[in-house]
Design a protein around this nucleic acid. Structure first.
Ligand SMILES: [Mn+2]
Ligand SMILES: [Mn+2]
Ligand SMILES: [Mn+2]
Ligand SMILES: [Mn+2]
Lengths: 215, 215
DNA sequence: ATTAAAATTTAGGCAAAACTAAAAATTAAT
DNA sequence: ATTAATTTTTAGTTTTGCCTAAATTTTAAT
């Protein structure tokens, strides 16, 4: 598989988690910042290689082959992110772009040795689960902070949006994985929350609350 | 720079250490396992970008720009090799291919943090020097085992050929960086050496002796 | 049920990096 | 100094991945 094919497969995988019945051409184009016509070209090639099942105008989904490939790319991406944060002291908002390149390095041995070196981590720096060698992903039940009950203790286990902007905002607010949350009040007009974060009271907009996973 | 351009620049760099007056098209093609006509195409492009100075039929050499780029690629390659051997427990004969890919990951911060993480190593697993952040390469005086004086103590500081086959042969013979050498006898007919290696007497062919650096 | 809008695909092209075959320049040999 | 051999370049294709513009299909709106 080429780097480009891998990027497509990974994007289709991520999109299929949200729309399992079939992924749209335009959605793929949007994620890859390319044009719909380019996507159509690639879908034909991926279909030829039995990585996706594709009927024109009907959207696309991963085959068993494609799904496993996607999980292996995600595995590599997330393991490299752990390496960059844990070993090289990168901040969690700096690693995605680099991992986007590192995920395409071709060596089974490399990724399994890296996994061992890191101590077989279960989650990446953004709280996303890391598929194991066979592609199995540990299922975790979590909810969005926006769905949390009032006056109940939660802690932060992940972010939904892992853009640099959002992560930097969280740094500024001193919110990190492991931070404790207790929703004190929900403003019914705009769903703004008053939350006790690490024993400090803060105002959290609905948009923010919709991008924080808690448990 | 694309991956392909980087591979060309690096090969031109390595060849120019041997033939400083100008690197031949065919030599480049040989190293990259491509055709001379492809090399000519690329030389035009590299020349356009001021990475090499090139006049047709006259061979090619690196510009100042090209030289610095080359050293940075070599730096990355060798630092990744150190990482693979020191941290991930790869054998020294397994790392070159993987480093061949890793050297193209684009991030200044990554390579400098990796350098720090590894403790600013001066040499790679094959004894080759690692250029520093500015491209400066520590000069080491060394000689080939084939040039060593009789009955004088040396130790192994590098290999000239770092192919997997040669390195595996050295493993089998229990020769590694740091091994001590004392040449007991030189057979004048074929230059075969009798060498005391780590206090064990062994017969070393001229070809082998020509690929071991000692000090 | 038509029509309008949106999504998707096709057609035709372009640039990068490779190739083969043929031409040109350089180097070596008589 | 010619001729022959070798090296290098040019010319013309191919494949991959992308593009624009136009055509087609699906979906939404009247
Ligand atoms: Mn990421
Ligand atoms: Mn990627
Ligand atoms: Mn190497
Ligand atoms: Mn390379």
């Amino acid at each position: 598989m080429t780097t480009s094919e891998e990027n497509y497969i990974k994007v289709i995988y991520h999109l299929s988690l949200v729309s399992p019945k079939g992924v749209n051409t335009n959605a793929i184009a949007g994620m890859l910042e390319t044009k719909a016509s380019s996507v159509t070209d690639m879908l034909k090639k991926l279909s030829e290689k039995d990585l996706v099942s594709y009927q024109k105008y009907q959207g696309v989904s991963l085959t068993e082959n494609g799904l496993l490939s996607a999980k292996m790319i995600v595995r590599k991406h997330r393991l490299w992110e752990v390496f960059l944060v844990e070993k090289l002291a990168f901040n969690w908002d700096e690693v995605h772009e680099i991992a986007e390149e590192l995920e395409h390095i071709k060596s089974e041995a490399l990724i399994n040795k890296l996994d061992a070196f890191l101590g077989f981590p279960a989650f990446d720096p953004h709280g996303d689960p890391i598929p194991n060698e066979k592609g199995v992903i540990q299922k975790v039940n979590k909810l969005l902070l926006s769905e949390a009950e009032l006056n109940k203790e939660y802690y932060c286990i992940g972010v939904k949006d892992s853009s640099s902007e959002f992560l930097k905002y969280l740094d500024k607010q001193k919110i990190a994985l492991g931070s404790t949350f207790k929703v004190i009040e929900r403003e019914s007009f705009d769903d703004t929350l008053t939350v006790e974060i690490n024993a400090q009271e803060k105002i959290i907009s609905n948009k923010i609350a919709n991008n924080l996973y808690v448990q």
